[in-house]
């Protein structure tokens, strides 16, 4: 009993530090503008209002941004998972001449080593020439590309954990390579796949830089860009931004909770032989 209470005591500061900004955002979204800057701050006693939610999702286009964000995040995650998983499988299972499998892996990883901003201008020019500026497709392409190395490295590690015998048994049993991958290997790495999917989705959902550079119109804007757009030279719409932010948290939270069972197993996969 004593040990348990001690445990929570240690966890408490971390929990407060992590949740305080979220709590603050959530309360701001419910406060009237007059209460936003009250001194001392109104932590608990304020008259809640839904005006900012109405303003954001009815008067303004935040509903549209939300849909755009969802489409871009989901499709780019699926693309990155499909392409990355196949690449990871190939790198994990086949030896290429000249040590190419190892070199390729490092090369793929190296694309994550430079700051994202250095690719912003080239990507802008490419998308302009391809006439893809202000489209969801541009963001899907860029997010897929940026998530790929991550997927390849994560999945490669999970594939390494699966004994080769199982696939070879599937081949001898008459299955094709792809069939063995789909029917035997993928079910075994599904926790890893789920963990990877959650990370990709979070990264795409929260991405700001490329969305800002590549999209300008209401129809193509994602939620983070939409929220930041309420900071103008005349005013800062704290209430609207908080309301949109509070809504933006929900889908990821729900998805992560649904995947929680896999997430823990996925992250600790390989630590203990099953």
């Amino acid at each position: 009993m004593k040990r348990a209470s001690l445990k929570y005591l240690v966890l408490l500061p971390a929990l407060v530090a992590a949740l305080a900004p979220v709590y603050w955002m959530f309360t701001i979204s419910l406060k009237s503008e007059a209460d936003h800057f009250a001194v001392p701050p109104a932590w608990f006693n304020f008259a809640p209002t839904l005006e900012h939610y109405y303003d954001a999702f009815v008067t303004r286009s935040f509903g549209q941004y939300l849909i755009t964000s969802a489409i871009v995040a989901v499709i780019s995650t699926i693309c990155a998972l499909v392409l990355g998983t196949l690449a990871a499988y190939a790198l994990a299972r086949f030896r290429l001449p000249y040590d190419l499998d190892r070199r390729l892996s490092l090369w793929i990883l190296s694309t994550r080593m430079f700051p994202a901003i250095v690719t912003a201008v080239p990507l802008f020019l490419m998308m302009r020439d391809l006439r893809l500026l202000n489209t969801k497709a541009s963001l899907i392409i860029v997010y897929t590309a940026f998530n790929l190395p991550f997927v390849v490295w994560m999945m490669r590690g999970f594939f390494d954990e699966v004994p080769r015998d199982l696939e070879e048994a599937a081949l001898v049993d008459g299955d094709s390579r792809l069939g063995a991958l789909v029917r035997v290997v993928l079910p075994l790495v599904s926790p890893g796949l789920a963990a990877t999917a959650v990370f990709c989705l979070i990264v795409s959902w929260n991405e700001f830089l490329f969305a800002l550079v590549l999209t300008q119109t209401d129809a193509s804007m994602t939620l983070p860009v939409g929220i930041a757009g309420r900071v103008t030279q005349y005013e800062i719409k704290w209430g609207v931004m908080s309301a949109a932010g509070a809504v933006a948290i929900v889908p990821i939270l729900v998805f992560a909770m649904a995947m929680q069972k896999y997430l823990v197993r996925g992250l600790s996969m390989g630590a203990v032989k099953g």
Binding site: P163, A170, V172, D173, G174
Partner: peptide, 19 residues
């Protein structure tokens, strides 16, 4: 290819599909 040879193999590890 392996899948077209119509042979059956028993592995040392048995290689049963765990799922």
């Amino acid at each position: 290819q392996t899948q077209h040879r119509d042979l059956a193999m028993v592995f040392q590890s048995y290689a049963l599909y765990p799922h």
